[in-house]
Every structure is written in C-alpha cells, then in structure tokens.
C-alpha cells in the first residue's frame, strides 16, 4: 500500500498566495481532479507535488518519507506530464518512444506499434514528429502512460488538443491505472465522463479575486 500526502502546503508566486495550508492524503486507487480557474495554481500544485518546483512552505511525503530527501526513490515512482509534449520534432515517433522507454527504466520489451494502435495513431512509427498534427503529437507524448510503470501520475491538462476519441482512450487508461492500484492527479477544463469510478475533487480558489 502506498501513500502520498501533502502537509500544510503553501505556494506564493509574485506575492500572490496561490494556496495555503493545503492538506491532501491519497492512497492506492485514488483519482483526484484539481479544479480551479486559470491562474489559480493548478499547474503549480502539480509541479510542486512532482518536485519540479519548491513549495514556499509545507512538505510532501511518499510513504511517509520526505520526497526531497528521498528524491530518486520518489522519482522512480512518478510520471509527470506537463503542458508540453516533451517529444523531439526531429526524431521519428518510434525514436521518441525509445527514449521514453529508456527513461522510464522498465526492462520489459515493448511493442511500439501496439501502443500506437491503442492510442489511435497506428502505423506512424517511422514518421518524423514535426510532420504530424498537434493532436497526434499530444498522443505521442501520452504514450508515456502506456510505457511507464510508475505508480503515481501527475497529468497537467492531458486532454488538451485531443479529439473525443482520444479523450476517451486517455480516460480509459487513467481509470484502468487507478483500478490496478495506481494514483492519478490531473487537471482539466473539459467535462470528464467518469461515472463508474470514485473521483475526488479539490478546488483551488483564487485568493486574490
């Protein structure tokens, strides 16, 4: 059983208090949606949780161990996907996936074609990523969800640039991951159709509004 908790977290950006005294504890199978208006600190919260940026106050614990102290132990359990796709436009789709695979550190062999088929862009292995559309690029970036074996996912606007069909695929993989004991944090501005799974919500208000 893994546990991820945030204690008394505070984030101040340019003298604006984005959030203060934030406490969250989430265990296996947890699915948490972070809501809030633009600029309310959703992305900052995900970046702080993943350890990309430092909170102004508070601590983040993974299995009761401070994630800053046990950085690499924590980092081998997470997958963070930001607004950007983190794919290289001069590499082919498959070359990009090979890099993702190596960085994910999973030893198992992976059939890239099957993953591409699952995510709805079959037979694109040899195409340079600069030659595909924004939605397709997003899908290539999201193949990390299939490649990674990490338990804890932080997804910042995963549905951006995706069409309905793409959105459904990603929703399905998120729920499947949670059912298998994973934990997912995500933000979105789109309507989610998750009816058959308990979804937790937190709302970040704009304190300065």
């Amino acid at each position: 059983m893994s546990k991820f908790s945030i204690n008394n977290l505070e984030c101040v950006r340019q003298n604006n208090i984005l959030f203060q005294g934030l406490n969250i504890t989430i265990k296996d199978h947890g699915l948490l949606q972070i809501n809030g208006a633009n600029g309310s600190g959703k992305s900052s919260l995900l970046q702080i949780c993943s350890g990309l940026i430092e909170p102004t106050a508070g601590e983040i614990l993974w299995n009761d161990k401070n994630t800053k102290k046990y950085r690499y132990e924590f980092q081998s359990n997470i997958l963070y996907l930001g607004h950007t796709n983190a794919i290289k436009s001069s590499l082919t789709v498959e070359e990009n996936m090979k890099v993702m695979h190596a960085m994910a550190g999973t030893k198992s062999k992976i059939d890239y074609s099957i993953i591409l088929e699952k995510i709805g862009i079959p037979n694109t292995n040899e195409i340079l990523t600069c030659n595909i559309s924004a939605g397709q690029k997003r899908r290539v970036g999201l193949t990390r969800l299939f490649i990674s074996k990490s338990k804890l996912w932080f997804l910042d606007e995963p549905f951006n640039a995706l069409d309905e069909q793409g959105k459904k695929i990603i929703e399905k993989i998120i729920i499947k991951h949670c059912k298998n004991g994973g934990i997912v944090f995500f933000t979105t501005h789109q309507e989610m159709e998750i009816n058959n799974y308990p979804l937790q919500n937190i709302h970040l208000g704009n304190n300065n509004a």
Partner: peptide
Amino acid sequence: RSDFEDGSIEQLVLNRYP
C-alpha cells in the same frame, strides 16, 4: 534550448536516474 522549449527538461529532471 530545445529541451527547455519542448518540455523534455522536465522529463530529464523528474527521472529515476541521477
């Protein structure tokens, strides 16, 4: 530069490897 632009840098930093 390109790592910063396309977000690869975040993947490098938040990696299991040093």
